[in-house]
């Protein structure tokens, strides 16, 4: 049983933990629609002022200005959320990386604990 436990811990278990970290990062990117927002970065935000306008040159110029504003506004909002999504994914990755680094050490926790106790480590 001990052998089976250790072989799983350093084999399939570790790989599974790595997979979980990847899954959490992906979920974070999906929650903030990062791929979709990148694809539509310069689309008019919620199609506001996106329609075609017929009329005088002034009206068309004004419509073009509105459209431009809608696109710029959309790009700003999207960029913000892309940034938040990326930061979130990065945080999830860092936490996951720590988890993966600590993972192989966990079996040695009792030994490390005893050594620390014997050495009288105190904060």
């Amino acid at each position: 049983m001990i052998v089976a436990l250790f072989s799983w811990w350093y084999g399939a278990g570790w790989a599974r933990a790595a997979g979980r970290v990847g899954g959490r990062m992906k979920a974070m990117l999906e929650a903030f629609s990062v791929a979709l927002l990148l694809r539509t970065l310069f689309d008019p935000f919620r199609q506001i002022s996106a329609g075609q306008v017929r009329g005088s040159f002034d009206a068309q110029l004004r419509a073009m200005g509105d459209r431009l504003f809608s696109r710029v506004f959309g790009a700003v909002v999207r960029s913000l959320f892309i940034f938040i999504g990326l930061v979130g994914a990065l945080l999830a990755g860092i936490i996951g990386l720590i988890e993966l680094i600590v993972w192989p050490v966990v079996p040695f926790f009792p030994i490390i604990g005893i050594v620390a106790a014997v050495m009288g480590l105190k904060p």
Binding site: V106, P107, F108, F109, P110, I111, I112, G113, I114, V115, A116, A117, M119, G120, L121, K122, P123
Partner: peptide
């Protein structure tokens, strides 16, 4: 402030 705590905490690993 007891260093015995390290040994106790280490037992959580298994």
């Amino acid at each position: 402030g007891s260093s015995v705590g390290w040994a106790v905490a280490g037992l959580g690993g298994p």
